[in-house]
């Protein structure tokens, strides 16, 4: 039952983030970029449900507009990681020769570079921007996907139908595409959800360190960073982005957990 709860709560939270970002795309209560000095630091009220920030911008509007940036960060970071990491993992899993080994070792080297370290270097080299942050998070996440994919492939490869395909002379690329990928896809999906949550957190951390400066529409991480100067006098500035980040991270984590439990028969608990 609790497993189901994870899945449901996770799906609802993720759905909420998606919905907010879609609505934010076409409509927000106020212009999320228009500075109104006269309206600064208003407390929550009927006109501004979550109040306004130091620029006089409606916080709800910023949260709605920022949801898109947050999703973009997640999609790109996880996308880079999965698109590069999964094929590498498949190669490493299917090839037991030197190629596979080199991939495994290269992954280990990359694993030694945490996202923050990469982000610091990238921000210096390419200028600090949300794009750099996404790139750094994505690259740092590649090894995670490589490892997961490789582990999955090793399991799949030991099964009879693969051996049969190999014997019948089908090329490895085709085996990978036809049999391996579909079999490890659920595993990748679970990891993607968890990595998505981590990417949101990482972006917030990078924003805090000043390594992910905002595009047109700032992410929640940047909002939180901007709000910290006002924590003592106007804590309402921090509450909305903090809750939004925590909610989204929680959502993606729970969704990942729920999916894993659903897919992994080993974790199915023995009925008592």
């Amino acid at each position: 039952m609790m497993r189901r709860a994870s899945l449901v709560v996770g799906a609802v939270l993720v759905g909420l983030v998606l919905m907010v970002s879609l609505v934010g795309l076409v409509w927000t209560p106020y212009d999320p970029a228009r500075v109104v000095p006269g309206d600064r630091l208003l407390s929550p009220s009927a006109t501004h449900w979550l109040g306004t920030d130091a620029f006089g911008i409606d916080i709800l509007s910023r949260i709605m507009a920022g949801a898109r940036s947050v999703l973009l960060v997640g999609v790109f970071a996880v996308g880079i990681a999965a698109l590069v990491g999964v094929p590498l993992g498949i190669v490493a899993g299917m090839n037991s020769g030197w190629l596979g080994r080199v991939v495994v070792r290269a992954t280990d080297v990359l694993y030694a570079f945490p996202a923050v370290l990469l982000a610091i270097l990238f921000a210096g080299a390419l200028g600090s921007s949300t794009t750099t942050a996404m790139l750094a998070i994505g690259i740092a996440t590649i090894p995670v996907f490589t490892r997961i994919a490789r582990a999955g492939v090793l399991q799949v490869m030991s099964q009879d139908f693969i051996t049969a395909s190999r014997v019948s002379g089908i090329g490895w690329l085709r085996i990978a595409w036809r049999h391996v990928l579909p079999n490890i896809a659920p595993l990748i999906g679970v990891q993607a959800s968890v990595s998505f949550a981590l990417a949101i957190l990482a972006e917030a951390a990078l924003s805090y360190l000043g390594l992910a400066t905002p595009p047109e529409v700032p992410t929640w991480g940047r909002m939180l960073y901007d709000a910290q100067r006002h924590l003592l006098n106007d804590p309402h500035l921090a509450i909305a982005p903090a809750v939004a980040i925590a909610g989204a991270v929680l959502g993606f984590n729970l969704l990942g957990d729920g999916l894993r439990d659903l897919l992994d028969p080993r974790l199915k608990e023995v009925a008592e």
Partner: peptide, 14 residues
């Protein structure tokens, strides 16, 4: 523990 994982470390620190 799920909530703990969802809070940015710097926010907890501040």
């Amino acid at each position: 523990s799920q909530f703990g994982m969802a809070v940015p470390a710097f926010l907890a620190g501040i």
